[in-house]
Amino acid sequence: MCPQNVHIVTGSVGSRGTLAEFLIRKLEHFTSLSLEDKQALELAARQRTKRIRSRDDIIHEGDVPQSINLVLDGWACRYKTLEDGRRQIIAYLLPGDLCDLHVSVLREMDHSIGTITAVTVAEISGESMRTLTAGHARLAQALCWESLVAAAIQREWTVNIGQRTAFERLGHLLCELFVRLRSLGLTNGPTCELPLTQAEIADTIGLSVVHVNRTLQELRSAGLISLRGRELTIHKLEGLQRAVQFNANYLHLDREGRHLDANEP
């Protein structure tokens, strides 16, 4: 039996189009992929997909991971919860993100992955991923970069909580999410989706909800951002980046991985 919050689709998913589109866009920031690489990713993504409603879990801490989840659409997050219910969000997972490339080697999950919006994921078995990387050298290279960038984002978040002011923490998070979405083609000029509640932002940057609300007002008053419902507009991206000391180098979106292509056949 499938949980009521999950809809399973196996095999072809008909009119959904190219399921691996956002993953391919992201990986091509690191290296160029051949048509065969892209087709192999698409085939893996189409084997089994799962739709999960908003504010629910994809996988719980303590569960035995059976597959690698690829976010096809929607927003998800990685989080830890203390025994008294306090929660720390430790990553946001956007379309094209893999929920831990090597998670299938773990005996049990040491964190949970939950949805922010309704999310569709592709379940890729560890065996399928190993076959993919063994047969496609550039794809293996790009996925290695993807893992390194995920670790770089985690380091930046540690600095965010440990050293930045509330204004810098929140502004830095907004810059990162905007730049990541823009790299996927998911922004509209200076505007992007932001489906996060103030409580979720508080759980991300280590502030109270009251403090988050006050800091949002500071960003608005400075003329840097506006929020309307689920939409964020950054009016002065370069100004916001300077104000919060945001440097996007840790996202490695400048196609640095392409220098390795010279050594490939």
Rank of each mutant, 00 (worst) to 15 (best):
K38C: 06
A152P: 00
W157G: 03
R107N: 14
I58A: 08
L219H: 11
R258Q: 03
L224W: 07
Q217H: 12
A118E: 15
G114V: 05
E176P: 10
T187Y: 06
Q39N: 09
R220T: 05
I205W: 15
R138I: 00
L177S: 13
P3N: 04
T49Q: 01
A20V: 08
D57N: 15
G126I: 12
A140P: 01
Q245V: 12
K26Y: 12
E168K: 00
H172S: 02
I68M: 01
F246R: 03
R48N: 03
M129P: 02
A199M: 13
I24G: 04
L139K: 00
W157N: 03
R107H: 13
L173Y: 13
T81G: 09
A76S: 00
A45S: 05
H252I: 08
N247L: 06
H172D: 01
A45T: 09
V149G: 03
L132G: 11
A44E: 09
I201W: 06
H172N: 02
A76E: 00
A166P: 00
R255F: 02
S34N: 11
I225L: 02
G62A: 05
W157M: 04
A243N: 07
L174M: 11
A45M: 08
H60Q: 07
S183L: 06
S221K: 05
G171T: 01
Y79V: 07
A150V: 04
T215W: 08
R48P: 05
A134Y: 11
L227N: 01
D110Y: 02
G229M: 02
T117N: 08
L240S: 10
L101D: 13
L207D: 10
M129F: 07
D203Y: 10
P3C: 08
L177Y: 11
A118K: 15
L94W: 14
G17Y: 15
C192S: 15
R214V: 07
A20S: 04
I234W: 04
G114F: 04
Q39G: 09
V105F: 15
G96Q: 05
R25T: 12
D57R: 14
I24F: 04
E36Q: 15
E21S: 12
Y79G: 05
A137P: 06
L94E: 13
L33N: 03
Q141M: 04
T133A: 13
V9F: 15
F167E: 02
C77L: 10
L98A: 06
T81V: 06
A262W: 14
L174H: 10
H102Y: 14
I201P: 03
P265M: 09
V64L: 15
V149S: 01
G135D: 05
R220I: 07
L70C: 00
